[in-house]
Design a protein around this nucleic acid. Structure first.
Lengths: 179, 179
DNA sequence: TATTGTTATACTCTATAACTATA
DNA sequence: TATAGTTATAGAGTATAACAATA
C-alpha cells in the first residue's frame, strides 16, 4: 500500500491512483502500456505502419531472410494484416518485397538502406520513450522491473495461453531460415 | 540481459522470447496484458459488460455514491460507452440507476445485493488470475514488481500524458461525493 | 449557456472467408 | 491437397456529434 519513497532518480508519485483500481493488475498494465504507446507515438512521429510497422521492419532486419508469413507469425499478427503493413513500409521505401528463389509463392521482406537507417533512428527514440516511462524507478529498479516483466511474459508464452496466434516464433535468432 | 535464474517458487522460462522484441518494453507490456486478459476472461466467465463491466461495478461499490459520468471519468471511458455498460449491468440486476435528489439530470449507479456478492466472487477469481500471471516471480519479486508498476503508472498519470480522457479521477477515496 | 444521460453515426482494428499462384 | 499472398467483408470496439431534460 505505502510506497517506500523512491530512493533516487525518481520523480515522486504526486498522483493518487483510483482507489478500486490501484490493486487491479490488469488496469495497471493497461495504463502503463497506454502511457508507453502515447510516449512512443509522439517520439516516433510519422511511421508507415505505426508502431506495428516498426516492429515489422525490426523483424526483417535481424540479418536473416524472412517472408511475410514468417514475420507475421513472429509478431503474432494475421497474414492479411501483414499485407497492409508491408504495403505501407514498401510505399515508404523502407522495405522491399523480393521473390524467394526457393519458393515462388513467398515474398521475402528485405529492409532497404533507408529502412535500416530509419530503424536505428527510431530505435533510439523508442529507447528514450522507455526511459521516460521508467523514470519513476531507480536504475536498479528499472533492471529488476524489466527482468521481472520478461519472465512474466515468458510464463505467458509458455503457459497454455496462446500469446500470439502461432507460437512458431519461439525459435533461436536466425539459423534455419527459409527452410 | 541475462536473468539471474529465478530463486524460488518460479516456473522456469522454458520459452525464448523473439529476438528483436524481448527488449521492446511496449511489446512486453502488451503481451503481459494480453496474457492477463485471457486468464481473467476465462476466470471471470460470463459477465455483463466483460471486464469493463466488472470495473464499473467495482467503482460503484466503494461506499460512495457516484453517477454515470463520475464513474466514466474515473475509469477513463466515454459517457456513451458507460450507458451501454450500465445497461448491461442493470439487465443483469447487478446495479440499479437511482435518481439523484440533488440533481435530477444525474443517475446514481448503485450496486444491488446480488451485485455486491458477484463483485466479491469475481474479485477473488481475478486475484487468482493475477497470481497465475505473476507465478514466474518469487513472492518478494511479485511485491517489488507490483510496486514498481504502480509507481510507473503514477508517473504516467502525473506526466503530461493524459492517461484517461479526464484526470478528474485523481481524488481521494470518497469524501466530496456528488458535490 | 453548461451539463447529464442518451442515441445514432462514423471510424478503426481485427477476424474470416474467399480467390490466385504456386508447391 | 496444402500453402503464401492477396482481397473483400463483417464484426467488435471506440470516438464524435447531436438531442432532450435539467442546472
Amino acid at each position: 500500500m505505502e510506497y517506500a519513497d523512491a530512493q533516487a532518480g525518481a520523480t515522486e508519485p504526486a498522483v493518487t491512483l483510483p482507489e478500486e483500481l490501484h490493486k487491479d493488475l490488469g488496469w495497471l498494465l493497461g495504463q502503463a502500456l497506454h502511457g508507453f504507446l502515447l510516449a512512443a507515438q509522439t517520439a516516433v512521429g510519422e511511421f508507415p505502419g505505426g508502431l506495428r510497422g516498426f516492429q515489422v521492419l525490426s523483424a526483417t532486419a535481424g540479418g536473416c531472410e524472412r517472408n511475410q508469413l514468417e514475420v507475421a507469425r513472429r509478431l503474432g499478427v494475421d497474414r492479411s494484416v501483414m499485407v497492409r503493413l508491408v504495403d505501407d513500409l514498401e510505399r515508404g521505401t523502407l522495405v522491399r518485397r523480393c521473390p524467394d528463389p526457393a519458393d515462388r509463392r513467398a515474398r521475402i521482406v528485405r529492409p532497404t538502406e533507408a529502412g535500416l537507417a530509419r530503424l536505428r533512428d527510431v530505435t533510439a527514440r523508442l529507447r528514450l520513450a522507455e526511459q521516460q516511462l521508467l523514470a519513476p524507478l531507480t536504475a536498479q529498479e528499472q533492471i529488476s522491473f524489466s527482468d521481472a516483466l520478461r519472465r512474466v511474459v515468458a510464463g505467458v508464452l509458455s503457459a497454455g495461453v496462446p500469446p500470439v496466434p502461432d507460437p512458431v516464433a519461439a525459435q533461436g535468432p536466425c539459423p534455419g531460415a527459409t527452410a
